[in-house]
């Protein structure tokens, strides 16, 4: 794999605390998820890649250059921070024009690109609204729009769907998948396991400033769905007798939530079939909680 981004033994400290500890990472084209709990160092890692922070030691190579000192290379990068950070006093259009000018994008192209993205997110009617008047979710759509204004080769996103509704989140994910297919490099930071596992991609798990797992979506299921439990939400409760007939270890949580022990993720299909055969209607399966337990609280480190 040819690296687009290369982190060579990167460490970053704030005061005496290490936010990143000797990170070595090579990221190629396509989507890479960086997954970790609060305070794991995800945003610091992204800021080092975006050239906002200079590492205390080690080097960041972005498209073969140092993004901190080489302003020119940042023309090909886009960064979407987690705090939306657009200018409240300017309209969406003027925000886009301002950033477009910094990236050397022609005004006309910028407005046309912004309208195209906003239309995709069903927000083009806000183009002349001042950003300060928009809701948190709509502001995040505008920030995503800004992130695409320079048609970047590398896009770095910090929790880009955190405040979006389900449909807009899906559209953002769809756009990112399309970009990955076009050969762009997409780095997506999130703390939500359910978000990370929506992509069929590489997943780097970070905790306490270190990459503790470098895997894929499928790999994550293989590695973490062993001898664990999943929560299954039923549309209506069913009798304890029918639940016992499942054979797996079952615990009724509250009314129509049941917790079922499984050996691996393949067991989920078996359990669901048994539940449906018993007359239950399955509303959802929550697999995130056990994965979070294992990922963030230290079980199975480095498997």
């Amino acid at each position: 794999m040819k690296s687009v981004i290369e982190l060579d033994n990167v460490s970053k400290k704030f005061g005496k605390e290490y936010a990143l500890h000797s990170i070595g990472l090579k990221i190629g084209k396509g989507i890479t998820l960086v997954l970790g709990p609060n305070g794991a160092g995800k945003s610091t890692l992204l800021r080092c890649m975006a050239g906002l922070y200079k590492p205390d030691s080690g080097k960041v190579h972005m498209l073969g250059a140092d993004p901190y000192s080489d302003a020119g290379i940042r023309k090909r990068i886009s960064f979407m921070p987690d705090n939306y950070g657009l200018y409240d006093f300017l309209s969406v259009r003027d925000n886009m024009l301002f950033f477009a000018r910094l990236y050397g994008v022609d005004d006309k192209d910028a407005v046309s690109k912004a309208l195209e993205t906003l239309k995709m997110l069903d927000a083009d009617n806000y183009i002349d609204t001042k950003v300060g008047q928009l809701s948190r979710g709509t502001k995040q759509k505008m920030l995503f729009c800004k992130a695409l204004i320079n048609n970047p080769d590398v896009i770095l996103l910090d929790e880009p769907t955190a405040f979006l509704d389900a449909s807009s989140s899906e559209r953002v994910r769809g756009e990112l998948s399309d970009m990955a297919k076009e050969g762009k490099c997409v780095v997506f930071v999130t703390q939500r396991v359910d978000e990370a596992t929506r992509f069929d991609s590489r997943i780097c798990v970070i905790r306490e400033g270190r990459i503790i797992r470098d895997t894929t979506t499928g790999g994550l299921y293989d590695e973490l769905f062993k001898e664990t439990t999943v929560s299954i939400r039923l549309a209506k409760p069913i009798s304890a007798g029918k639940l016992r007939s499942l054979g797996n270890k079952v615990k009724i949580e509250h009314g129509n939530m049941v917790k079922v022990s499984i050996r691996n993720y393949r067991d989920i299909n078996v359990v669901l079939k048994k539940l449906m055969d018993a007359g239950a209607y399955v509303a959802s399966v929550d697999y995130a909680e056990p994965m979070i337990e294992r990922l963030y609280r230290g079980d199975n480190d480095g498997e």
């Binding site: 906002l52 940042r74 990236y103």
Partner: peptide, 17 residues
Amino acid sequence: ERKTSENLLAAPITNGE
């Protein structure tokens, strides 16, 4: 204070500019 600096500093501008 307004936390708008990240987008600005991530743009391709030099410290001088």
